[in-house]
Amino acid sequence: MISATNITMQYPIPKRYVEYLTQPFQTNYFKALKKINIEIQSGDRIAFLGVNGAGKTTFLKIIGGLLYPSSGSLCINGIDTQKQNLKARKRVGFVLNEERSFYWRLTGKKNLLFFGALDNIKGEELHKKVEELLRMVGLEDSKDKIFAGYSSGMKQRLAIARGLLSNPDILILDEPTRTLDPLSAEVIGTIISERIHNKKERTLLIATHSLSEAQILCNKICFMKKGQIIDYSSIKSIISEYGTLENYYKKMMNDEMVLDKVQQKIVLQ
């Protein structure tokens, strides 16, 4: 179970030149997350929706132990991600959307072997695991090709394989199909739904802008807006209330636009 309590995250914002002179000791901050409270049960498959800058990636990085919150705490099965960072990280596989996160001059297989060793897998077991994952994501024929020669879809498949190396209880995917064409995105979707989610107790957390991806892969939606969770519901209940995910999304977006207009009016007055 993942339990987040009062998570707040603020980033320092670069100052303008004049501010260095007028407020030399003051740091300006941008609040990326504001008092997030959520409990995620084991085996849940949650799609994090929301516009760019809503706080989805920041929150997922806090779950993955890549960031520490400015205040509040996050526990994975009772393990605090700040106090026992390494122990908590052992539960989590992170599929980064950054295709540069591999070594471009190494082959796909050598990349996976390296990251597998970092995940404490060794010897014959490491080689077997890497071969198995390469087969699972359909890269067994391209395993000895250097990473620089991979297409975007292949890079993303390799990233998924890396996320699964340690057979994690929680798999985090940050916009896994963001840069892909529809066909490649479909392949990734199939890999996730058919081959990754065969482990029923595995929790799947996906930040996405694709509603169809959310509907196919997940059973819950966590809608984020301006650093806050404004809705956390099962897809079933959303469909019964709104008919489609599109309607639900539009409603949430319209609410946001209305809110923005109200705020603009207040500022103008």
């Binding site: 390494l86 990280r89 540069r100």
Partner: peptide, 18 residues
Amino acid sequence: MAGCLEALLSSQTDTKTI
């Protein structure tokens, strides 16, 4: 700069060792 640091730090090896 290569973008690999995040991937390294999300692994199960502590930062000092990396």
